[in-house]
Amino acid sequence: MSGNGNAAATAEENSPKMRVIRVGTRKSQLARIQTDSVVATLKASYPGLQFEIIAMSTTGDKILDTALSKIGEKSLFTKELEHALEKNEVDLVVHSLKDLPTVLPPGFTIGAICKRENPHDAVVFHPKFVGKTLETLPEKSVVGTSSLRRAAQLQRKFPHLEFRSIRGNLNTRLRKLDEQQEFSAIILATAGLQRMGWHNRVGQILHPEECMYAVGQGALGVEVRAKDQDILDLVGVLHDPETLLRCIAERAFLRHLEGGCSVPVAVHTAMKDGQLYLTGGVWSLDGSDSIQETMQATIHVPAQHEDGPEDDPQLVGITARNIPRGPQLAAQNLGISLANLLLSKGAKNILDVARQLNDAH
């Protein structure tokens, strides 16, 4: 009898209710805020589980004197976190989706994509230029951005401005803007500013005609071990179906173009009346040469937790077992079709030249 009692006690200790789920994140304040929001949602869904947040620095956090596009290494903000995932030191990792490459290392998958916040870019102005827009900034004003995508589009749109690289986390960039006289304004992701509670610093939100956004911008991705079915089931509740389908289309477009950090590629997606609209573009580094096109596809946005595919093969690095396969494939095909259209119009040449120029500098 006593033996059975011990077995029952052991089973209770090993039951999922007692389990601590370890969540990996970057150390920056924004990353911690984003991770806290994901953990809060998981806690609400699984009140019996405990969650421990483990923060670590990544290569991208450490190399702050070089433009991201020049470092010449993929997975700048993800490699150390993936290493911890691989060694079973954490069970899942919360990322900004735009930091996750469209091809993940073997053994990993994006197990959830959370509801997207505003994906557009924002302009934050130096205190002396508050009330201005990019259009009304004085001639030769210097605007800071760490992104080739932003610089290429904005140089084309605002030729009277000069664009220079600015690195560091959000706090560091804002301090550089406010305390030094080098920059009249800087460009940042609206979602990051909003998550930090800095709505009052948003001086201008850039519309798609001015600057399309990065693939996955404004959404959070939760990376897990691809074979860890328990954790895949656990994080599945975080999937937002519309965000998922938009981001599958965007990531398929980028992957098929073979774009990345070192080339200016941008997108804009919208879901309306059962249609998914995808606009994508590529630019030369100075913005003088560009190709942009829009395509659409009829896609039914499923309700969360309709029964999805059981075999769960990944699409552009994403596993969404609780979302039907048909809409996911339709979104992926839309991204591939748009990429093929741009490639047929000469996108590869623009991107190759951009890559060579970026590598040469």
Rank of each mutant, 00 (worst) to 15 (best):
T243A: 02
D36A: 09
T319S: 11
I166D: 00
A84V: 07
G218C: 01
D36I: 07
N200D: 14
A189P: 03
S37F: 11
E293K: 11
P127C: 03
I63N: 14
K157T: 07
L285M: 12
I33V: 08
D99M: 05
A320G: 14
P138M: 12
G259R: 06
F77H: 03
D178E: 13
T109L: 04
T319I: 09
N169T: 09
L206N: 02
T136A: 07
H83S: 12
V267T: 15
T136K: 12
V235K: 01
I113E: 00
E86S: 11
L220M: 12
G281L: 08
L329W: 05
D289K: 03
G287V: 15
V237S: 12
V282I: 06
V93W: 01
T102I: 12
G216H: 00
E223R: 01
L49R: 06
D121W: 02
A330R: 15
L148E: 04
S147I: 08
L174R: 08
E310Y: 03
H83C: 13
V301S: 06
L234N: 14
K27W: 12
M212Q: 03
K132N: 15
D228V: 04
D233I: 09
H300M: 02
E52S: 11
L220P: 00
S45A: 14
G203V: 14
S290F: 14
L161I: 09
F51G: 08
S28D: 00
V202K: 07
T298G: 03
A31W: 01
V93G: 08
Q50S: 01
R251M: 10
L278C: 12
E117C: 13
R116D: 04
K70F: 10
C114Q: 12
Q296C: 02
K62F: 07
G60L: 00
S96D: 03
R201L: 14
C247M: 04
Q155S: 13
V316D: 10
N171S: 12
Q229P: 07
P324D: 15
G346E: 15
E223S: 03
G144W: 04
Q296E: 11
D352Q: 11
P101F: 06
P309H: 10
G335K: 03
H305N: 13
V267Q: 02
T136H: 12
V94H: 06
G48K: 14
T78A: 07
I113M: 03
I110S: 02
G144T: 09
K272Y: 02
K43H: 09
P101G: 05
E210A: 07
T145F: 10
R173H: 03
K70W: 09
R246W: 05
I187R: 03
L81R: 02
Q194R: 13
I205V: 12
K132C: 11
A360K: 01
Q229V: 06
K132F: 14
E258G: 15
P105F: 14
G72V: 08
T319L: 02
G216L: 02
N358M: 15
D99L: 03
D307T: 05
L177C: 06
P106L: 13
V215M: 10
R225I: 05
F125P: 12
R26H: 01
I291W: 08
P208K: 04
Q180I: 03
R325Q: 14
L338I: 03
L206V: 07
P47A: 07
V235Y: 04
G107V: 10
K87G: 07
I205D: 13
V103A: 07
G335L: 00
V143G: 04
S69M: 14
S344R: 15
G60M: 00
D286R: 12
